[in-house]
């Protein structure tokens, strides 16, 4: 559970930096008072949590499937860690754009916001929760290592709590206006964390090789 929380903390800045351009213009434009902002934000966070829980179920199913594929699960996970860590490094240092699913809302956001104003932040949250950026994929694999569905859900719940720490104060503090430096921190943090996951992947591979 701690792992999930810490992973959430490490990717929170990135999530915030990339989803903020989608979220904040709406939040800052719509809500007038702190109370209104907090209400919109809680619906957004609920949507995000739902997105994460959907992924927790998928992560658990994937983990189980991997178990049936091979008895060298450790080595496989180690290999995936190395692969994802490389991707994370490339994403951290390269000029890639991040597949934040909420971006696809842009097109019909205005219509939806007008016709279903109560539902809009929820959907926005759900879509930013259904994210396929490399840090998120790492969380996916890490959660898949859990043997029960309950553990996988708990992992994503704590992952959510970790990222939420970045989301909650941001709109209230007006951080949405200046996300470029935050984006740099998020990207470079991803690159730094990639080294850690690369090393963990190597250790898993090494351990798997020794025990086989």
């Amino acid at each position: 559970m701690l792992q999930g929380f810490l992973l959430g903390l490490s990717t929170g800045a990135t999530c915030l930096a990339y989803c903020a351009p989608v979220l904040f213009p709406y939040l800052l434009g719509e809500a007038k008072s702190i109370r209104q902002t907090a209400w919109t934000l809680s619906r957004f966070m609920l949507g995000r949590l739902l997105g994460y829980l959907v992924f927790a179920v998928f992560a658990w199913l994937t983990g189980n499937y991997l178990n049936t594929l091979t008895d060298r699960r450790e080595m496989l996970i180690g290999f995936i860690y190395i692969l994802l860590a490389t991707l994370l490094l490339w994403y951290g240092l390269g000029q890639t754009s991040v597949p934040c699913a909420a971006g696809s809302l842009r097109g019909f956001a205005a219509t939806l916001a007008q016709e279903r104003p109560a539902l809009f932040p929820l959907l926005l949250g759900l879509f930013t929760g259904l994210n396929l950026c490399p840090p998120f994929l790492l969380a996916f694999i890490a959660a898949g290592e859990n043997s029960t569905l309950g553990h996988s859900l708990l992992f994503f719940l704590s992952f959510f709590a970790g990222t939420a720490l970045f989301f909650l104060p941001a709109p209230l503090l007006g951080l949405g206006k200046n996300v470029s430096q935050l984006k740099n921190v998020g990207r470079l943090a991803a690159a730094v964390m990639s080294v850690y996951y690369f090393y963990s992947g190597l250790l898993l591979l090494w351990g798997g090789m020794i025990s086989s």
């Binding site: 740099n184 470079l188 943090a189 964390m193």
Partner: peptide
């Protein structure tokens, strides 16, 4: 921004 990223990385790890 790198010192902040390293800070985040080392605090978490």
């Amino acid at each position: 921004a790198l010192p902040w990223a390293v800070l985040l990385g080392i605090v978490l790890t």
